[in-house]
Design a protein around this nucleic acid. Sequence first.
DNA 1: ACTAAAAAGAGAGCACTGCTCTTGCTTTGG
DNA 2: CCAAAGCAAGAGCAGTGCTCTCTTTTTAGT
Lengths: 228, 228
Amino acid sequence: MSTAHGARARARIEVTAAIKDEARKQLAAEGAAKLSLRAVARELGMVSSALYRYFPSRDDLLTALIIDAYDSVGEAAEAARDTADAAGPVQRWIAVCEAVREWAFAHPHEYALIYGSPVPGYIAPDTTVPPASRVGLVLIGIVRDALRGPGLTMPPLPAELRPEAERMAADIAPDLPPAVATALVAAWAQMFGLIGFELFGQFHRVVEDRGTFFRHGAGRLAAGVGLR
Amino acid sequence: MSTAHGARARARIEVTAAIKDEARKQLAAEGAAKLSLRAVARELGMVSSALYRYFPSRDDLLTALIIDAYDSVGEAAEAARDTADAAGPVQRWIAVCEAVREWAFAHPHEYALIYGSPVPGYIAPDTTVPPASRVGLVLIGIVRDALRGPGLTMPPLPAELRPEAERMAADIAPDLPPAVATALVAAWAQMFGLIGFELFGQFHRVVEDRGTFFRHGAGRLAAGVGLR
DNA sequence: ACTAAAAAGAGAGCACTGCTCTTGCTTTGG
DNA sequence: CCAAAGCAAGAGCAGTGCTCTCTTTTTAGT
C-alpha cells in the first residue's frame, strides 16, 4: 500500500496537497503570473526553501495545477454527459459544451492556464496528455453513440484532406468515419474559441445575451459534425 | 506639425519608438511574462528609471505593444483581402483566415498577448478597441460584398436568439441580415479557436497536416456564414 | 538495537524584478 | 535672460525564483 511507509510518507502527501490547495487559491485570486512560491510557503507557515523539497521548481507546481485543472474540466464534461443520458445526441452535445463553458467561468484562471497562452518557455510534459484528452473523449463518445443510434449526416471531406482525415480517425477514433472525425476535431477547437473569446473579453460590446448565443453556437457545431 | 516642438519632441518620439522596438524584440524572444523594463533599458544604454518618463508602468508598455499587434494582424488581414480581390467571397474569406493564421505563427508571442489569456489584473483601455476590430471588419466586408454579389445562403436563426441577433446586427453591421451577422460573429471566434489550438499545442499528436486541415476548416466557417 | 543514509526544515544569500524618490543637468518658452 | 518644465542618473525598497549550507528527524539495513 501507499501508506506502508509510515508517518513520513503520509505527511508528505498531506503537505503536498496543502501546497497545491494554497497555490490553487492564489491562482484563482490573482492568476498564474502572480502565483508566488514564497507567498504559498508564507501562508503555510513554512520557509520558501522547504517548498522545493516538494516541487523542484515553480513550473513543476504549475504542471501539477494544470493536470488538476484538466481533470476538473474533464470531470465536469463527463458529469454533464451522464446527466443528459436520456436525451438525444444533439442535446447531450450541447449539455457538454455548456458544462465546459460553465466550468470556464467558475475557474477563469485555471481555464487560462490550460487553454490560454502557454507560460513562455514552459513545455508541458507527457503526463498532461491523458487528462487533457478527457473533454475530447466525451465528445467522441457522444458522436459514437449517435452513429449507433439515429445516425449521422456525413460532413463533406475534400480529396486533399482525405489522407490526413484517415490518419486522424485511426489515431483518435478508429470506429468513426474520417469525415466525422475531422469535423469533430474542428468543432472541438471551435467550441473553445467561442468560450475563450467570451471569457477573455473579446465579446465586450459585441455579444450581450451570451448564454443564448453560446447555446446556439454549440448547436451549430453539433450540426457541423453531423449530429441530428 | 508634430515636429513644431523642436529637437526635444523629436528625440522623445525616437526614444519611444526605440523602447517599443526593443520591447517587441524581447517579447518575440521570451514572451510577455519575461518582458523586463530593466532589460529593455539596459539594452538601450539607459538607466531603468529613465524609462518611466516614457511609459509610466510596465502595463502601459504592454498596452502599446498590444495596440501595435492588433494593427499588425489587422493590416495582414486587409492585405490578404486586397490581394484576393478578384476571387469569389469564399476564396477571399479563406485567404483572410490563412493570413491571420500565418501572422499568428510569425508572431506567436504577440498573438498570445492579444488573443491568449489576458495578463491578470490587466484591463485593456478603450484605446485598444478600434485596432482590435480590424480583422472583424475585414470579415464583415467580405460578407457585405457577397450580399451584393452572388448572394448568401441564410443561416438558421432560432426565435430565442432573434432579439440578440437584431441587436448585434444593428451594432456591428446594420446592412447585414441578423442571422448572417450572428453566424459571422460565431465564425470569427471559431476561427481563432482553430488558430489558437494549433499555435498553443493542443493539436500535438492530433492533427498533423495542419495547413490543409485549417484551410478546410476556414472553408466550412465560410459556409456556416452562408458564403457560396 | 544501533548506525549509516535519506529526507526534511531553517536560514542566509545571489541575481533579478517593478517602481519611487531625490539630485543634478539641459532644453524650452515667456 | 531666466524660471519652468523635461529628462537622465543613482540609490533604495520590497518582492521574486532558486541554491547552498547546516541541523534535526525519520527511515532502513545489519
